[in-house]
Amino acid sequence: MTLLAGKNAIVYGGAGRIGSAVATAFAEEGATVFLAGRTGARLAEVAERIRAAGGAAEAAEVDALDERAVDEHADAVAARGGIDISFNLITHDDVQGTPLVEMSLADYERPVVTAVRTHFLTARAAARHMTARGSGVILFFGGDADPVREFAVGGLQVAFHALEAMRRQLAAELGPHGVRTVTLRTGGIPETIPADFAGRRVIEESITGKTMLGRAATLADVGAVAAFVASDRARSMTASTVNVSCGALVD
């Protein structure tokens, strides 16, 4: 029996590398996946690949920073049998590689504002439907982490810390209604680094060098763990983080 049979999952940023991997894993485990994002053509391609492999997927252009668009899309999915899983994986428009003392205020604060705004909107939209049904899972990605010494990451870590504060508060408020909130942490996924990025090799070596298993997490690893955490087999997991870092992150 598949882990997510009969469940509806919304994946925001479903055309991205992580989003498409998670959506594919959800579909492989039996979920109907509703891909949401701003790139309609790319979303359609991911949805078609999922359907070609025997899964169920639909795509919709949704700006996950737009309150009305998020609410209307969530309402439409809920009308199709409810929302069981919500996972926001849109990019945060962060600037990396620039030291903080050389960074503009706009570049520093953009990922913080973007992350907080979009996750609040999507989590709230899902939670309103989940609490009414008494069940559901809201997943986050990133998590608290120690400062990165090898590479300047701008405001990205601040954004992750803000999201963890949000996730903890949601866990406390939504738990009594049967809704779980969990964060997946990876320590970095080499596959997500653009092939033409000048510092790719250095970052890949840094990520792998910190692991205990001698390899970094893959996109497939993240998708598989996300599917498990979203399933009823993980029903006791909430207000927590799941370490998918191959030992790079020590809890």
Rank of each mutant, 00 (worst) to 15 (best):
M1N: 10
L4R: 03
G6Y: 05
N8S: 14
A9L: 10
A9W: 02
G13R: 11
A15P: 03
G16C: 09
A21K: 01
E28M: 10
E28K: 13
F34N: 01
T39G: 02
R42A: 14
R42P: 00
L43P: 04
E45V: 14
R49A: 13
A52D: 13
A53S: 15
G54K: 10
G55M: 07
A56P: 07
A57I: 03
A57D: 04
A59W: 01
A60W: 10
D63T: 05
E67I: 04
E67G: 05
V70D: 02
A74H: 12
D75A: 15
D75T: 06
V77M: 08
V77Y: 05
V77T: 01
I83L: 09
I85S: 02
I85C: 00
N88C: 15
N88M: 07
L89N: 14
I90H: 00
I90Y: 00
V95Y: 05
Q96N: 02
Q96H: 06
G97T: 13
G97H: 05
G97D: 09
V101L: 09
V101D: 15
A106Q: 11
A106N: 14
D107F: 11
Y108W: 15
V113K: 14
V113R: 12
T114G: 06
T122L: 07
R124A: 12
A125E: 10
R128W: 02
M130Y: 11
R133I: 02
G134V: 02
G134R: 12
S135E: 12
G136H: 08
V137N: 06
L139E: 01
F140V: 06
F140G: 14
F141M: 08
D144Q: 06
A145L: 15
V148R: 06
R149T: 13
E150G: 11
F151A: 04
F151L: 07
A152K: 05
A152H: 15
V153F: 00
V153I: 11
G155V: 02
L156T: 15
V158W: 05
A159Q: 06
A159C: 10
F160M: 04
F160N: 03
H161T: 09
L163V: 00
A165W: 09
M166G: 12
R167D: 11
R168W: 14
R168K: 09
L170P: 04
L170Y: 12
A172R: 11
E173H: 09
L174E: 06
G175C: 03
G178F: 07
V182F: 00
T186Q: 04
I189Q: 03
T192E: 12
A195S: 12
A195Y: 12
A195R: 14
G199P: 07
R201H: 08
R201P: 06
I203Q: 05
E204R: 11
E204C: 08
E205L: 09
K210P: 03
M212E: 13
M212S: 15
L213N: 06
L213A: 06
T218Y: 14
L219G: 13
D221E: 03
V225I: 12
F228T: 09
D232S: 12
A234G: 08
A239T: 01
S240N: 10
T241E: 14
N243G: 07
C246Y: 09
A248C: 07
A248Y: 02
